[in-house]
Design a protein around this nucleic acid. Structure first.
Lengths: 211, 211
DNA sequence: GTCTATAATTCGATAGAC
DNA sequence: GTCTATCGAATTATAGAC
């Protein structure tokens, strides 16, 4: 059926796999469904990736890891400047995924769903996902701590979680949400980043957690 | 194996089904796993509930519907008072699920996971879940609108989504989160409600979305 | 690297005795 | 209402020819 180069078979599988994992979740995705839509044969998944778990890990590595890398690079860049602010930290977190997803069009919508939904996967996928985002979480929590060192430890953790939950919700549901109040589902990346930052920044201001 | 009354067979299945759906997601849950842990036979699920979809719907109805009902009753009560504020609306949304989950102990932890994770289920479960929460969403969006009628339509929708995303994240991940900064995973319901309300209230203040 | 064929499980659902 | 037995379909994974 297919006679392209070997690279495109692997990429074809990754593309469709991301789409299926995003749409149906890990457990709801079948390798047969992927290979059928990708026009490759059953054994090619095992040959190129291994098991279903391995394929998911490959999708994570290929599509999600660059996002984390961009966030961390951006954060490092901001933290090396003298006039660091909370808003700059938030923008370092929000801008890379939002702008990447938006710039990719229809493919970005799939990536968006994948990035959002992978955070609520049951075990053992949860641990795999967490291992990809642990360094990101730790670095941003450290940034919150460095900026305002006098808060309770729990404050920094919940700041990260609230910051994360807003974008997870956006990535997973923005299409459904926008359909409720407007006919188009088009959106502007800068406006979304502003909206997330604004809400999160205000939410974090004067935030204090009882012991 | 079992010789209780018929009511407890049904309840037993519901309890274990909630736990499995919460832990493994809908697609990752098997009826065989449920009936094994519930010590009932395979056919009893079909007899009492019907299909796997029907069982999920029954769990939603039994465990999630009362939460929505409590939220709406609370909101109606608040809205009938003359001195309604944004914070009172937020507390009407957050307090019923948080306090119920907390009051149920280990069973509440399962309910918490179920309530959180059901919001990110793929289709066709998403539509079922959404049908249970649509009235809640509409009523709270109306409340935001009634309180501050001069904002853009999208503002009300994103307010609800942000408010929702904070509690979904809490319900799904609080155990993991707390393990990162303290040894115990015990928590105080009032403190959590305060934390969610405070963040969300500040986030909504001065919130404005570009057209 | 690609493909067919199939092994080995597991699943949801149901028939039918008690 | 309960239970055993089982059907038919779907799954992951792999063996082996080309």
């Amino acid at each position: 059926m297919r006679n392209d180069t070997q690279a495109s078979t692997k990429d074809q599988i990754l593309d469709i796999a991301e789409s299926h994992f995003a749409t149906f979740g890990f457990a709801g995705t079948s390798l047969r469904g992927i290979i059928k839509e990708a026009n490759v044969n059953v054994a090619s998944v095992a040959y190129h990736f291994g098991s279903k778990d391995d394929l998911f890990a490959a999708v994570m590595q290929r599509f999600a890891a660059p996002v984390v890398e961009a966030q961390l690079n951006r954060l490092s860049s901001e933290m090396s400047q003298p006039n660091i602010t909370l808003e700059k930290i938030l923008r370092a977190f929000y801008e890379p995924p939002i702008q990447l997803v938006h710039s990719l069009g229809a493919k970005g919508e799939k990536l968006s769903l994948f990035l959002g939904r992978c955070h609520s996967e049951p075990e053992p996928i949860f641990s795999l996902v967490d291992s990809h985002f642990a360094s990101c979480r730790n670095r941003f929590i450290d940034a919150f701590k460095a900026l305002e060192p006098d808060k309770t430890e729990s404050v920094y953790h919940w700041r990260f979680e609230f910051m994360l939950s807003l974008i997870v919700n956006f990535l997973t549901r923005h299409k459904n949400i926008m359909q409720r109040y407007q006919t188009s589902t088009d959106w502007n990346a800068n406006d979304v980043v502003d909206m997330l930052c604004q809400f999160c920044l205000n939410g974090m201001s004067a935030q204090q957690i009882k012991k």
